[in-house]
Amino acid sequence: SSYVCVECNFLTKRYDALSEHNLKYHPGEENFKLTMVKRNNQTIFEQTIN
């Protein structure tokens, strides 16, 4: 599966890399929402900020 930060167009295969991205680029933000999307037999988790 892949993880994408929709706000930044940041894409990674690792959830911990997304967490690091959030700490660096969205410090103090807590209203993240992950949406699971299936595309071409791949699972993509799209992160948006509410």
Rank of each mutant, 00 (worst) to 15 (best):
P27N: 06
N31W: 02
I44K: 07
Q47T: 01
L18C: 03
M36F: 08
F10P: 00
K13E: 13
A17F: 14
T43L: 07
V37L: 08
T35Y: 01
Q47W: 01
F45E: 12
N22Y: 01
S2L: 11
K13C: 07
Q47F: 02
C5R: 00
M36V: 07
N9T: 09
E7A: 10
N40R: 04
Y3G: 02
D16P: 14
N40M: 05
R39K: 14
N31T: 09
Q47M: 02
E7P: 10
F32S: 13
N50G: 08
F10H: 13
Y25M: 13
E20F: 09
A17R: 08
F10C: 07
N9D: 06
C5V: 00
H26L: 00
Y15H: 02
S2Y: 07
C8V: 00
I44T: 08
L11I: 04
T48K: 05
S2E: 04
E46F: 02
Q47L: 01
V37N: 15
Y15L: 06
C8D: 15
C5T: 01
F32K: 14
V37K: 10
I44E: 11
N40K: 05
F45D: 04
T48G: 12
T48A: 10
N41W: 02
R14E: 14
Y25G: 13
V4Q: 09
K24H: 05
L18G: 01
K33M: 03
S2R: 04
V37Y: 04
G28W: 03
T35L: 08
C8K: 00
L11N: 13
E7T: 08
S1H: 00
D16W: 09
E29H: 10
K24Q: 15
L11M: 12
F32P: 10
Y25K: 15
H26A: 00
F45G: 13
T43C: 11
L34C: 03
V4W: 11
D16V: 10
T43N: 10
Y25L: 13
P27K: 15
K24I: 09
S1M: 02
N40D: 13
K24L: 12
H21V: 01
F10D: 02
F45T: 15
H26V: 01
N22I: 02
T43K: 12
S2M: 07
R14Y: 04
E29Q: 10
L23V: 13
C5N: 02
E20K: 05
E30P: 06
K38R: 09
S2K: 07
N41I: 10
P27D: 04
N40P: 04
G28Q: 13
T35R: 09
H21Q: 00
P27A: 07
L11T: 08
H21F: 00
H21I: 02
F45L: 10
E46G: 02
V37G: 10
L18F: 02
I44M: 11
E30S: 10
N22F: 00
M36N: 15
C5S: 01
C8A: 02
E20Y: 03
F10L: 10
N22K: 02
K13V: 11
K38F: 02
S1I: 15
